[in-house]
Design a binder for these strands. Sequence first.
DNA 1: TTGTAGGCGTTATCAA
DNA 2: TTGATAACGCCTACAA
Lengths: 335, 335
Amino acid sequence: MAEKVTISTVAQHAQVSRQTVSNVLNSPDVVREDTRRRVLDAIEALGYRTNRAARQMRTGRSQLIAVRIEPTRDGINGSVLDRFLHGLTDAAATAGYRVMLYTAAGPADEIATYDDLLSSYELDAFVLTGTDHGDVRTEWLAARGVQFVTFGRPWDNPERHLWVDVDGASGTAHATDHLIAAGHRRIGFIGWPAGSGVGDDRRAGWARAMRDAGLEPAAALDRQTPDGIAQGESVAGDLLRGDAPPTALVCASDSLALGALQAVRAAGATVAVTGFDDTPVARAVGLTSVSQPLAEAAAGCMDLLASALDGDHAALGHRIGPMLLQPTLVVRQSA
Amino acid sequence: MAEKVTISTVAQHAQVSRQTVSNVLNSPDVVREDTRRRVLDAIEALGYRTNRAARQMRTGRSQLIAVRIEPTRDGINGSVLDRFLHGLTDAAATAGYRVMLYTAAGPADEIATYDDLLSSYELDAFVLTGTDHGDVRTEWLAARGVQFVTFGRPWDNPERHLWVDVDGASGTAHATDHLIAAGHRRIGFIGWPAGSGVGDDRRAGWARAMRDAGLEPAAALDRQTPDGIAQGESVAGDLLRGDAPPTALVCASDSLALGALQAVRAAGATVAVTGFDDTPVARAVGLTSVSQPLAEAAAGCMDLLASALDGDHAALGHRIGPMLLQPTLVVRQSA
DNA sequence: TTGTAGGCGTTATCAA
DNA sequence: TTGATAACGCCTACAA
């Protein structure tokens, strides 16, 4: 077990005062070059690392950011959070931060957790994955001046706070374009009930691409249902049994798409299907799907946070604003 | 923004010294009942929370445990880590700990990260997911007296350190039994190359169940391949084209099973298939699979750690040892 | 440019 | 049973 090496140890070793060591670390420009050199060498030689707890006590900053790990719902979309978390952890480490996990049963519970985390761990910031209209969490955080960024736009007001998002409309538009290019004309959409920002956005992309191609995004081809494989299968089945069944289906999630695929197979039909999120399941069953740049999104969240917390970037003149990333379409056998 | 309430605030409010407040918190038995009451009331009224950084500086303990978030390889098995992490975060919170994430490119990088995390954040313990024969990481940690627990047995020596694991052999044996009960006799196994503890274990379960039923786990029915859908498909295809093809296949992973399922479909055969891990993909495609009790495993890891770290359980006389949990078979259409 | 002094909130030691 | 004192490692004044 190595001896504990503190700032004093370094100071002794470098023949300077503790303060000079601290200056080398925190205000390098204020210390003479050769002294700086000497101190840096000592730090290197001794393997000194600043003790975060001590620093935190003085500065009130923990270099810790928190993110919620949600229980995997139908499981399929769990991998999205997974990849996002990995990217965030990487980006955070690079920026000198670490990621702490927390769970919460609901919004109220989540706010209680914020309170706890903030007052006892002094977390520097939160990363929220997704927001709703009138999100109580973001209001709570903003009211207390806590830094946070959301992965997902605040749908009611884009200026409300820092966010990073992926352009879902663009994703479904890509998928729709791809189908149109393949000769499809009757292209249906299976998405979530109106009211969820994300769902509305994805539906809008389909409708836009249809209109841009001179096609009508008819209500008869536009279905709404809660997320899930069974739901997708049921709704797709309805569509396929309709008057003028679609020859292709754009779905708002891989879960819905997977259900749709099953309905198509059951009906013995040949209908192209696209999903959203490019989950492992999509890869496994050959489902064409819209892929979100999750590592980039995570890095974006961290950039925004670092910018707000450290003020470096702001000082450098390029204050970073919200960012909307473009997804890509991964084409497989299903479409 | 609420005023900062420290132990001194509480002391004033309760008309006692700071130390007494500390005692109420850390050695309740040493303080008189009515004083304790008074202090507790003050804590409640003021909403006091102990500052972890300050406590950490004194005690050297951070109440933080670290776990690595791995990049999802073929993606399918990512959900396993996901569920484990969720369970761990929950269990940790209950035990008064928090989970910190880190990534690492390889064993060497991982050890460098240990060093960093330990010396600058003073982490209390690590949770490793899986170990190999002669794992350098566990040796490094053990040599430095760092607490850790592995989710996965140390295959060369069960006594080496704390661990929690799921009985993989039991899982594949269940699957095999299930197939035997359904009338199958020629049951093949598709697993990983010999040498990986986990893979060998799962293979052993199949072989044992076969023998127990008076059947021969013939080499002709036993295949080894790296993990992956493509690999599973290829190997299963070979088996199906063999002299006396199996009527059922037990696979060491859902990835392999999924590939096998595709090979079966391509061959137009009717062959039962079982997988391992009960991933979302298995649920999606109706694959019978062995399900690991991940939340329990995570809770077990935390229990072991808390026991070692806090010594409470040890003091109470029931020192907790390694634990081997039983998986369950989730039966779906594929078998 | 460098050094000295003080304090962040907590707990351990020891005296009252 | 309670309270005063010191110390954990660092950083921010301020003085030299």
